[in-house]
């Protein structure tokens, strides 16, 4: 039996012991719901009694209750070993071009503590996962790491390219940027009443 199978089996056992009476299950099929109706009902009664007795809108007794008491399944800690990694080299890259087999990028050597692009490289597209390939456009940024890792005592070399999932511009950032732009523009060209550089013009 593999480690993953053992893990799933243990979880199934836990389900059947604690939540076998779960509502919503199909007759004859193993119960898959995560909430035990009896436990939840009992908790709701306790909560109502507590709120009625205190009338304190800020108060709560949740912190003192165990997870089982509030009907939440707690998974056991994973006993799958997390590989220990030693990074020998790490770059931040910015994609310049994407070809049919390779993509070219400019690199910042993070291991050397650099903050400017000082190198460039062509990397094979094969090294990317399918989900990362979708993100591979000029301007995309990525981390490229080369190092060693230990798995079950074995030392092996690895190289990993991870394309960054970039965040979005927030309303706050845009508003701040526009205000800074207007301030700068007015500082340079004077009289703000005759200027068009005002915030929130979009």
């Amino acid at each position: 039996m593999t480690l993953t199978e053992q893990h799933h089996r243990q979880l199934d056992t836990r389900y059947s012991e604690t939540f076998a009476t779960g509502s919503g299950g199909i007759e004859g099929a193993p119960a898959r719901t995560r909430f035990n109706a009896e436990v939840l009902n009992a908790r709701q009664k306790r909560m109502k009694a507590f709120v009625d007795s205190t009338h304190d809108p800020e108060g709560t007794s949740l912190e003192s209750e165990s997870l089982d008491n509030i009907g939440i399944v707690q998974y056991p800690d994973s006993y799958l070993e997390t590989p220990r990694e030693i990074k020998l080299q790490e770059w931040e890259g910015q994609v310049q071009e994407v070809g049919s087999r390779y993509f070219s990028a400019r690199l910042v050597d993070l291991t050397a503590g650099e903050r400017e692009e000082a190198e460039e490289v062509d990397l094979p597209l094969d090294d990317l996962t399918e989900s990362d390939r979708i993100l591979l456009v000029p301007g995309a940024t990525f981390r490229w790491i080369i190092g060693y890792r230990y798995i079950r005592g074995e030392k092996e070399r690895f190289a990993r390219i991870v394309i960054r999932r970039l965040p979005v511009w927030t309303e706050q950032e845009i508003r701040t940027a526009d205000r800074e732009a207007a301030d700068l523009y007015n500082a340079l060209f004077g009289d703000p009443h005759n200027r068009a550089a005002t915030a929130n013009r979009d």
């Binding site: 931040e92 910015q94 910042v108 903050r115 940024t141 526009d178």
Partner: peptide, 16 residues
């Protein structure tokens, strides 16, 4: 100016 300042809010890269 607005373009530059908005772009400046993108702090996702070390190289700026």
């Amino acid at each position: 100016f607005r373009f530059a300042k908005r772009m400046g809010k993108n702090k996702t890269t070390v190289a700026g």
